[in-house]
Design a protein around this nucleic acid. Structure first.
Length: 424
RNA sequence: GGAGAAAUGGCGGAGUGGUCGAUCGCGGCGGUCUUGAAAACCGUUGUACGGGUAACCGUACCGGGGGUUCGAAUCCCUCUUUCUCCGCCA
């Protein structure tokens, strides 16, 4: 959520910037500014009426004390109409404030000045490519055939237990999941992230804080009896730790890493290119989250990108890093880097990580602020997060890229975690 | 799930209708003293919105929401959370 001050002061700038995200902001901004000035006008009136009211009440108190009952009664009479006026004015204020918030929430985050305009994946900018593309024989199998061959993931069983998109990991398949989770958490710890194990259901306030609610309501599983949402990513509970919190500047950046299963309804668009592990309703992910000083958040972003790069290269997966164009970025992001790994049998790049700086956009919703030592004013922090990493497509790439006649080779760094070198 | 008690500033803890944004203690910050530190002493100490170039001023906030009253931290209703006891339970 953009701050009202920014909208007031830099209207034209916002409109220009949002064009990069192909978002037409003029109309909403005009509406916001009109509501905002209406709000201030009413508040000014109610505040001064309230001040008068407080004054009269004090006088009545004093008169009562000194026994001047009649004068006190006269004072009371004065308040009756004043009280009614205040009530009717503040009743007007409520819908204005609601409308104002509803409108502000519709504005996406401003893309950073370095973000290029564009409409989709084709306009993204390749920043870097690493690793070696494996040469597989013509007989190489896609991962959905490999998992059947070695009996390590069962989709049909998942359909029986729950539904499509809820795979059951078996034997070495399950151990591989656990190994990857542990590997990612350990690497996060080495990079200075505190490990967090959060709840995987969150309340409405948390959903709002990170921007899933109200817009993306349909993308989350909703436990309606208790009004809880299954988390679509650990970003939600972990970032919300800092909702309504004022940090002191010395503790920044705050770095947390968390593993959670992730639940996404992802209505529509199921077909050939989302076969196997390419898209699931439930999957595992390790997420890194930073709360940063606004002056240093881009340093944090670069650090996170190189952390993720370290992970994919340690797993010996060919990868490329993209900077998303305006049109392909999320609503809340200011800058996003996507990581893709090469899936050799599908002959496709698969997105395995998205690392973003949200600047103060989430912080403003979260009311997460910090204070400089000796400073009276609070300022909004910057929040950042990134997958480090999401498991299913990493598994798909490992399975496909490392297949041999004798089985699937486990990347060296993972062997201490899996306890085996080969899936056969 | 049932019965009872409670929720106050960073923390502890007063305050049961009027000058209370809130006594006091601890902590934090600034200072005096000291070669330095500690101790002692003095001062200071929340957030948001609005007005003002600023100094500053106004308003709101005592778990959340609503009500009674000229006036609510204090009374009433409701929700949430915590604690104690009982029940159930991995």
């Amino acid at each position: 959520m953009l701050t009202i001050n920014l909208i007031r002061e830099r209207k034209e700038f916002i409109i220009e910037r949002l064009k990069v995200k192909n978002f037409k902001a003029e109309e909403i901004i005009e509406k916001i500014l009109a509501l905002d000035s209406a709000r201030r006008e009413i508040q000014l009136k109610t505040d001064s009426m309230q001040a008068e009211m407080n004054l009269i009440s004090k006088e009545i108190g004093n008169l009562m004390k000194s026994g001047k009952k009649e004068e006190a009664e006269a004072g009371k009479v004065k308040t009756y109409t004043l009280k009614e006026d205040i009530k009717s004015l503040s009743d007007k204020l409520i819908p204005i404030e609601t409308d104002l918030k509803n409108e502000i929430v519709r504005l996406p985050n401003l893309p950073h000045e370095s973000v290029v305009p564009g409409y989709g994946a084709d306009d993204n900018v390749k920043v870097k490519e690493g690793g070696v593309l494996p040469q597989l024989p013509e007989t190489a199998l896609p991962h959905w055939d490999l998992i059947k061959k070695y009996d390590i993931i069962d989709f049909d069983l998942g359909i029986k237990l729950t539904g499509a998109g809820f795979p059951v990991y078996l034997g070495k398949g399950a151990k591989l999941q656990r190994a990857l989770i542990n590997f990612f958490l350990e690497e996060g710890g080495k990079a200075g992230y505190r490990e967090v194990m959060p709840p995987i259901m969150v309340n409405e306030d948390s959903g709002f804080g990170t921007g899933q609610l109200p817009d993306k309501e349909g993308q989350m599983y909703h436990a309606t009896n208790d009004n809880f949402y299954l988390v679509p990513t650990a970003e939600v509970p972990v970032t919300n730790i800092y909702r309504d919190v004022i940090l002191s500047a010395e503790v920044l950046p705050v770095k947390n890493v968390a593993y959670t299963p992730c639940f996404r309804r992802e209505a529509g668009s199921w077909g050939a290119h989302v076969r196997g592990l390419n898209r699931l309703h439930q999957f595992d992910k390790v997420e890194i989250v930073q709360i940063a000083h606004p002056d240093h958040s881009y340093q944090s972003l670069e650090e996170m990108v190189s952390h993720v790069e370290g992970l994919v290269s340690k797993l010996e997966l060919p990868y490329r890093i993209l900077r998303l164009c305006g049109g392909d970025m999320s609503f809340t992001s200011a800058v996003t880097y996507d990581f893709e790994v090469w899936s050799a049998a599908q002959k496709r790049w698969l997105e395995v990580s998205s690392v973003s700086n949200f600047e103060s956009f989430q912080a403003n919703r979260l009311k997460c602020r910090f204070k400089e030592k000796g400073d009276k004013q609070t300022r909004l922090v910057h929040t950042l997060n990134g997958s480090a990493l999401a498991l299913p497509r990493i598994v798909a790439a490992i399975l496909e890229n490392n297949q041999t006649g004798g089985g699937i080779k486990i990347p060296k760094v993972l062997i201490p975690y899996t306890g085996f070198e080969l899936i056969n």
